[in-house]
Every structure is written in C-alpha cells, then in structure tokens.
Amino acid sequence: MSSIIAHKHAHFFHSADQEASSAKLGIWLFLVTEVLLFSGLFVGYTVIKTLHPEMWKVASAQLDWVLGSVNTIVLISSSWTVALAVRAAQTNVKGENNAKIGVLLIITILCALGFLGIKYMEYSHKIHDGLLWGTKYFNHPDAIAALKAGVKSTFGLEVTALSDASFLETLKAHAAAGTEQAQHLIHHYASTVTYKDTLMTVEQGHLFFGIYFLLTGLHGIHVVIGMSLLIWIYVGSVKGRYYRDYYTPVEVGGLYWHLVDLIWIYLFPLLYLV
C-alpha cells in the first residue's frame, strides 16, 4: 500500500511541531535515565575490578571475543538500518517509501533476533561450564558438593580428587547409557578439570560472572523491549502512518534502538576485551 494516513496532532498542543519537539525532548530525557540506570552497574564493575584485578583478568578471558565481536557488528549494522528507516520516513511524501521503511525495520528486527541468538549460545555455554554467579559458580563449595552428589547418585562413584583427569574417562565409560543428566554432569566435571589451573586458583571469579550476567541480562531485556517497539512501528509503517510531516514514532524508536546499541558498544570492550 503506498498511501499515507494523515496525522492530527493532540488537542492540547497548538501545533504538530510543538508535539514533535516535545516527544523528542521526552525521549532524550528518558535515554538519560537509561544511561544512569546502567551507570550503577558500571560503577559496580569498576569497584569489583579494582578490588580483584587478578581474578578479573583470568575470569574475563573466559568470554568468547569472537562471538562478542560478531554481535557488535550485528548491532551496529542494525543501528545503521534503523537510521535509514528514519530517513526514509522523513522523505516519505505520498507513501512511496512505505515499503522501504518496512524492509529496513524488518532488517533491524532480524539483527536484534540474531543478536539474541548469539547471546543465547554464549549463555548456554557459560551455564554448561558453571561459569555463573555466587554459589552457582563451579568452584564454589556448594557447586562442587552438588557435582559430587550428582556423580554419586548417577554413576555410583565417589569423587576424591577433582583434578583427576583419568576419572573423567571412568565417568565417560559409565555414561554409555548417555542420559542427558549424565552428559551434563560429565560436561560440568570436564570444565571443572579444565579450569582447575586457571579459574580454580582464582577466588571470587563468580563476581565477574555475576556482573557479566547482570549487565548483559539487563541489556538483553532492553534489546527485547527495543525489538517490540520496532515491531509496533513496523505495523504502523505498513499502514502508511509515517511521512514527511509526521515521523515521530520512527525517530523515537530509532533513538531508543541507538541507545541499546550504544550500551553494547560500552559493554563489549569492558567485558570482553579489557
């Protein structure tokens, strides 16, 4: 459909310009609150990193910087496509750009989904390896006790020394049945052995992963919110709601999406590279 639905500004504004500039100031202020929300976590990051610099070095090396880089590229591309969508809306006179706005928004939404997919891969890997927060961290006494109890109840074996690599072979032999729980235990045991020389010696590695999951989790929630907004805007764009004289939702949604991108641009080096 290449026509437009003319926008009528709300009665309490005296002009469409006043309405649009109010919306713009409003979203900028809201973005300020978002930055300040994350700022608390960045301060927590700085404090913990300063208190435990050695732990930080070892623990942060466990993140996959390749996946992190791919995600950075994905998000930056999506910021570009959403900016093009805003431009297309600004130059839309009679609805000739409706389809273009829609396609650009769809690409942006697909990028968001791709980002979340890659994040899911990273998260599952960390969960498998027990690289988690607090008492769930693989070398926490609680977690080790749980591992030993699991090995005992599943395979009937006593774990004596965690570092015994040959014990892993024994486990694998016992796990011929290959139940999911057994596979999971073996995986967990294997990572415990693997990380013995590095992470096992670093106390409080869980603090890094606590902050990692909080920062990326909160960011992930923002990706989901941003994506939902973009879907809503996409629906409007198909109907031809956005054109030269009224593109506020596209612009506001785009600004929000840029913020989601911007926060990741800080998260990526701080968590993966520093």
């Binding site: 301060v43 927590g44 404090v47 913990i48 208190l51 435990h52 732990m55 927060w133 607090g134 008492t135 769930k136 106390e203 409080q204 869980h206 603090l207 606590g210 902050i211 909080l214």
Partner: peptide, 17 residues
C-alpha cells in the same frame, strides 16, 4: 535472589558500596 555477592564481604563484595 541470586546471591551475586557484590555487597557481601564473604563473597568478595563491598557492603559500603
């Protein structure tokens, strides 16, 4: 809920934070 320990000295955190 999660026991992240950022404010808990026993887990390496800082209560004054």
């Amino acid at each position: 809920i999660m026991g992240i320990g950022i404010f808990d000295p026993a887990l390496g955190g800082d209560p004054v934070l």
